[in-house]
Computed example of a mutant assay.
Amino acid sequence: MPHSTTGRGRPRLESTDQRILQAARELLREKGPAAVNIDSVAARSGVARTTIYRRYRGRDELMNAILEQLIDPAPVAPDLPVSEKLRWVLDRIRDILENRLGPGATAAIIANSDPEFTTAVRARLANRLSSLTELMNLDIKSGRLHATVDPDTVLGLLIGAYLAELLRFGSPRDGWMDRAVALLTPAVTQPRD
Rank of each mutant, 00 (worst) to 15 (best):
S142E: 14
L86T: 07
I20N: 01
L70C: 09
N64T: 09
T51Q: 03
K31D: 12
R192I: 14
A120S: 15
A48C: 09
T185C: 12
D150V: 13
A182M: 01
N64H: 15
T118D: 08
M1A: 14
L70D: 08
Q190S: 11
R57E: 10
L67C: 02
T6G: 02
I159Y: 07
R144I: 11
L145N: 00
R49M: 06
F117H: 09
E30W: 07
V47Q: 07
R25K: 12
D152G: 13
G58C: 08
A182N: 09
T16I: 14
N64I: 06
I110S: 07
E26V: 05
T148S: 14
I140E: 07
L166T: 02
L157D: 03
L13S: 15
S40C: 13
L86E: 06
D72F: 03
P78K: 13
G156D: 06
E98D: 14
E68D: 15
A74F: 03
L101W: 02
G58M: 04
R100K: 15
T5A: 03
S45W: 00
A147Y: 04
I38N: 02
V89I: 15
A180T: 12
N99W: 00
T189R: 11
V89K: 00
N99D: 14
L80D: 03
I52A: 13
I159G: 10
R87L: 05
L158N: 09
R87K: 13
G104N: 06
I38T: 13
M177F: 01
R179P: 06
V47D: 07
V154D: 05
A74M: 05
L27A: 09
I66W: 11
A43Y: 03
I159A: 06
L132T: 01
I20P: 06
D139W: 12
Q190T: 15
S45L: 09
E26R: 15
G58V: 12
Y53A: 00
W176L: 07
A147I: 08
G9H: 11
I71G: 02
L158C: 05
L101F: 04
L135K: 00
A42C: 07
R44L: 03
L86F: 08
E26T: 15
A107R: 06
P172A: 14
D17G: 08
M63L: 15
G156M: 01
R192E: 11
R57K: 12
A126E: 04
R49H: 10
G104R: 07
S15L: 10
R173D: 07
D17K: 08
Y162K: 10
V181A: 00
R179F: 08
P73W: 10
W88E: 08
T5V: 06
Y53M: 04
T5H: 15
I96N: 02
I93M: 02
G58S: 10
L21N: 00
A108Y: 02
P75Q: 15
L184Q: 06
A161F: 02
D152F: 12
S15R: 13
R94K: 10
V41A: 09
P151L: 10
R49P: 04
